[in-house]
């Protein structure tokens, strides 16, 4: 019954410690960490922070699509929950420590993920897509109509700057706050997400999710509690996406219900697909590709929707689950093979 979307090689734990990859990762991390201090370019730093927030969200999303084989069209619910939790916890509850706020946002998103996970656990393929869409849309309507009086409807709510372990970073000048502090917080969050998911998705837990994706009936027959694992995968996914949303909320400083709308879900799907849902790093590459493409298209034309739609259409028809990251990997392998032959 499962959608046969992506294909992964069976990567063992030994290979994960392959030095070359680890080294490359560390180099990329250090270069990124030094980037704002070296260039002092606020525009680029802001753009990178933005990309990294969505890279976290797209990776979280891909746990459900790439690893468990289910297309959710409702992940805006988790992204938006993360965002609104930040605002409400800081504004209403009065907790302003950044780390505490992020943890709470992840927990709340995880709870919403548990609820949506339980409700959707028996549906497959397009029914799963449409059910997640409908559930997320319910949350969106609650936020737009301001039911419960928490969201201030379409006007949205502003986000104040958080504290950091008692250090009054919120008093820093805007440029230094972004270049020197917040950018690095998001970078560390992304690195932590990557490392954590790398191990989680290669653990027996991650392999079980892949088994469910490949053949749900067989997984069931071999004694895997499929339904429970599907809920787990949704909770994990929701927590990661919620973290992305929470970090993004602090970055942009103003929240509207649009981040709960289904077009937002569509954008998250788009990012993961663009980078490659069948690859581990694909969603990160996809988030970068999506946002850079959007910025590029916007600088030439106001009709960037058309460009994005065309790219999505072409990616679906050509690269499919490989995305640009998978496509690039295949290309490099082929070039290597050819060089080997000579």
């Amino acid at each position: 019954m499962s959608t046969r979307l992506p294909t992964f090689g069976n990567v063992g734990l030994a290979e994960t410690l392959q030095n070359r990859r680890l080294l490359a990762g560390i180099v990329v991390f250090v270069v990124l960490a030094l980037y704002p201090a070296m260039t002092l370019n606020a525009y680029h730093t802001r753009l990178l922070t933005w990309i990294m927030c969505f890279a976290i969200a797209a990776m979280g999303f891909n746990i459900v699509l790439g690893y468990t084989g289910l297309l959710s069209f409702g992940h805006a619910a988790f992204f938006g929950t993360g965002m609104y939790t930040v605002v409400l916890v800081m504004g209403r509850v009065g907790i302003t420590d950044l780390v505490a706020v992020m943890v709470i946002a992840m927990v709340v998103s995880g709870l919403v993920g548990a609820i949506i996970g339980v409700l959707t656990v028996k549906t497959h393929e397009i029914y799963f897509a449409l059910l997640t869409l409908a559930l997320a849309q319910l949350l969106y309507i609650l936020a737009v109509r301001d039911i419960g009086g928490l969201t201030r409807g379409t006007d949205g709510i502003g986000v104040t700057r958080p504290d950091f372990f008692g250090i009054p970073i919120s008093e820093l000048p805007a440029q230094i706050y972004l270049l020197g502090f917040y950018y690095h917080v998001v970078l560390v969050a992304l690195a932590a997400t990557i490392v954590l998911l790398w191990f989680v998705l290669r653990s027996p837990f991650g392999l079980t999710l892949k088994m469910i994706r490949e053949n749900e009936t067989r997984a069931e027959m071999t004694g895997v509690p499929v339904l429970r694992y599907r809920v787990y995968s949704m909770i994990l996914s929701a927590m990661v996406v919620g973290l992305g949303g929470a970090l993004y909320a602090v970055l942009i400083g103003h929240i509207t219900p649009e981040y709960l709308d289904w077009t937002m879900s569509g954008e998250i799907v788009f990012m993961a697909l663009l980078g490659g849902i069948g690859t581990f790093f694909g969603p990160v590459v996809g988030a970068g590709g999506f946002i850079l493409l959007q910025e590029l298209a916007l600088s030439y034309t106001e009709y960037w929707h058309f460009t994005m739609g065309l790219v999505l259409f072409i990616v679906v028809l050509t690269l499919r689950e490989n995305g640009i990251w998978g496509g690039a990997k295949t290309l490099v392998e082929r070039l290597n093979d050819r060089r080997g032959e000579q």
């Binding site: 959608t3 046969r4 979307l5 297309l71 069209f73 393929e125 397009i126 897509a129 569509g266 799907v269 788009f270 697909l273 009709y303 960037w304 929707h305 058309f306 994005m308 739609g309 065309l310 790219v311 999505l312 259409f313 679906v316 028809l317 499919r320």
Partner: peptide, 27 residues
């Protein structure tokens, strides 16, 4: 080409068509 692919990919490709049509109308 969309008739040949899985429903999930049909959803995604036609989401792209919505984005394109949206801008054609705005144009």
């Amino acid at each position: 080409p969309l008739y040949e692919i899985e429903p999930v990919y049909q959803l995604l490709a036609t989401f792209g068509v919505i984005l394109m049509l949206d801008d054609i109308i705005k144009y």
